[in-house]
């Protein structure tokens, strides 16, 4: 049984704002019957078309999906559209006193529906989310074929929620939760996003002595990289450092893992970001 907070239960048992708004200014629909959850969100603006005066929803989904929809409608009432767009999925979860991590995708669905509704109202391009298979203009490449999720959408959720593992990405977006075929690609996206973030805030030291560089490589492996591998049941061992070449061997779940090539790339990217640009990582069998 899920460990739902009292507030989740309360919003599930007594959802606020269920229904529709016949003269709604904006309507956003995400999800589908096949996906297992779907949300239709209605927004009514004041006469100046500035602030949200009413919001209603219809949701097909589990308890936390209904509670997240209820929370969302309560949160955005009284906000301007820009203020409403600033609501993150984490804030929806926080409003409910937290969601089990496996259920975070319910809060993401709420945020998505809101973005779709506002984008449609403003007439701009739709945000990059699911491939709904409609006439909607979609950008980005589909990564998760089972749930029709694009790289742009996944990267946004990864960055916003600081996700580090493919499992977390599944919990937040469902990507990779069905056939699992896109998990290596999700790992690449995580590495990409982490790389992008690091470029924003470079921590890299300017010049390093060889000794300091070797120490730093070990520190990064111990403090940044191995803990992430442990969360997936994997591990690695540092075998040798020869100049700019770092030799590692994968252990536990990483050893013989089909996507260890991606993991090696991830290790290399981390070391380049945090130690030195010229590092290359070599996987050795030991």
């Amino acid at each position: 049984m899920w460990d739902y907070t009292d507030k989740v239960k309360e919003h599930f048992l007594n959802p606020r704002n269920v229904g529709d708004i016949p003269d709604a200014d904006a309507v956003g629909e995400v999800g589908s019957l096949a996906c297992g959850d779907a949300l239709k969100l209605f927004i009514k603006l004041d006469d100046n078309k500035e602030r949200i005066v009413d919001a209603k929803f219809q949701t097909f989904g589990c308890g936390s999906a209904i509670a997240s929809s209820s929370a969302l409608t309560e949160m955005i009432k009284g906000k301007t559209l820009d203020e409403a767009l600033g609501v993150t999925n984490q804030e929806i979860a926080d409003f409910l006193g937290g969601l089990p991590e496996e259920k975070m995708h319910c809060s993401v669905m709420g945020q998505e529906a809101l973005e779709v509704a506002i984008a449609k109202y403003r007439g701009g391009p739709l945000p990059v989310h699911h491939d709904h298979g409609h006439d909607q203009e979609q950008e980005g490449e589909i990564v998760c074929k089972c749930f029709g999720l694009t790289d742009g959408f996944l990267k946004k959720v990864i960055a916003q929620n600081r996700l580090h593992t493919a499992e977390q990405v599944t919990h937040f977006t469902k990507a990779g939760g069905a056939c699992g075929g896109c998990i290596p690609k999700i790992k690449e996206l995580i590495a990409e996003v982490l790389g992008e973030q690091k470029q924003d805030a470079p921590k890299k030291p300017e010049k390093l002595t060889n000794l300091r560089k070797m120490q730093l490589i070990q520190e990064v492996l111990e403090n940044e990289i191995r803990p992430q591998l442990w969360t997936d049941g994997g591990d690695l061992e540092l075998i040798d450092i020869a100049g700019t070449v770092v030799q590692i061997a994968f252990r536990k779940a990483c050893a013989g893992c089909a996507s260890s090539g991606y993991t090696a790339k991830f290790v290399e990217q981390k070391l380049r970001d945090l130690v030195s640009d010229d590092i290359t990582v070599e996987e050795v069998a030991q």
Binding site: K9, F12, L13, L33, G36, D37, F60, G61, C62, G63, A65, I66
Partner: peptide
């Protein structure tokens, strides 16, 4: 049709 099982179970459990 058109409803989700967990939501049914939670309401039954109530």
């Amino acid at each position: 049709e058109f409803v989700e099982g967990e939501a049914i179970l939670l309401l039954l459990s109530e």
